[in-house]
């Protein structure tokens, strides 16, 4: 618990924001603050300069590429969730946004900030326990600790922390593009490359340079996404991170075969989890519960569990089968 002295700068332009952060080694962007201020107070992050980017003209939503949408990084979750073009073209993304956090937090949290949301792992958050994500090389307390909610996919010996975002699950399924401006110019990062698995460096979560600011998220035109859905399963009926969530966008052809499928999972991975194996197992195959189950098995074939979270595998497989079955019927 701390609230270290900080210097504050309110950026009036993107260039100013990027310059301010890149010229100061212990600095960070401050967007909605819903993660940053919480972790600052917990002494988990330790910036001494906060560059407030809330005034930047990045709250827009605009059409790109014949039906795609560009979402400004400072657009708030609640606004994006209810924007007609999002609701119509990507209903599953809208649902994911509305099932995240609470209305107050959704009014604060920005889309760009959400991409940088940090894990809820209690060993990361306590600021004290060995944690490779917070303090590289110190070890992972969660591996043998209380890990009911920890990830079963994408883990390593160094880290099993779960990625908490809902909307990022939708965005990995939609092959969104993260657009940035940094000290070295503009960049576009395919979203699956934006979320780094822990591997040997759990402290590095994104391929962002210091001072590189997310300015927009591009969601491509994708007709199948018009029937996409997001379902979130959790202990509490609301205001909780997912036990397991499923984003799906599926098209079944006249013959009853899966013609298109985009499937992603929340709550089970160290990153927002695109279920490539399940997609591959199903595309071109009949959309039957048996095949859905086989696809779910394939996705979790390499799952790494602990005694406390092994139920998540069964839980998630059943959730996938149910979701795809309901979408089909």
């Amino acid at each position: 618990m701390t609230m270290r002295p900080i210097t504050f700068f309110r950026a009036g332009s993107i260039d100013e924001a990027v310059a301010a952060v890149s010229s100061h080694p212990d600095s960070a962007f401050l967007a909605g603050g819903t993660t940053e201020i919480d972790l600052l107070r917990l002494n988990v992050v330790q910036p001494t300069l906060l560059v407030d980017v809330n005034d930047l003209p990045l709250t827009y939503l605009e059409d790109v590429d014949d039906g795609g949408v560009r979402i400004g990084a400072m657009a708030r979750m609640s606004d994006v969730a209810r924007a007609p073009r999002i609701v119509e073209r990507y209903p599953g993304m809208s649902q994911a946004l509305l099932l995240g956090a609470s209305e107050q937090l959704r009014n604060m949290a920005s889309m760009g900030g959400n991409m940088c949301q940090r894990t809820r792992c209690s060993y990361f958050r306590d600021g004290q326990s060995p944690c490779n994500k917070r303090e590289p090389g110190s070890g992972c307390s969660a591996l043998t600790g209380i890990n009911r909610g920890h990830a079963v996919l994408g883990t390593s010996e160094q880290c099993i922390a779960t990625h908490p975002s809902d909307v990022a699950v939708a965005l990995v399924a939609l092959d969104a593009m993260i657009r940035t401006i940094g000290p070295d110019g503009t960049n576009a990062i395919p979203i699956e490359r934006f979320f780094l698995r822990p591997a040997d460096t759990p402290s590095i979560e994104h391929p962002l340079a210091h001072g590189e600011l997310i300015v927009a998220i591009d969601v491509p035109a994708l007709p199948v996404a018009r029937t996409s859905r997001y379902v979130k399963h959790r202990d509490r009926a609301s205001y909780e991170f997912a036990l397991v969530s499923v984003f799906s966008a599926m098209r079944v052809d006249d013959a009853g075969n899966v013609a298109e499928l985009r499937l992603a999972l929340g709550g089970v991975g160290t990153v927002p989890w695109r279920a490539h194996r399940a997609e591959e197992a199903l595309i071109g195959r009949p959309a039957t519960p048996e095949n859905f189950a086989a696809a779910a098995d394939a996705e979790f074939a390499d799952a790494r569990t602990t005694p406390m979270n092994e139920f998540m595998v069964t839980f998630a497989k059943r959730a996938i089968v149910r979701e795809l079955s309901e979408v089909t019927s």
């Binding site: 809820r120 326990s129 600790g145 509490r236 009926a237 609301s238 205001y239 991170f241």
Partner: peptide, 20 residues
């Protein structure tokens, strides 16, 4: 290992909310 309570906030120690 540590003797610490695993949950120490209202985001993870779950009490009922309106929707429950």
């Amino acid at each position: 290992q540590s003797g610490r309570w695993a949950l120490n906030n209202l985001g993870e120690y779950l009490v009922p909310v309106h929707a429950d």
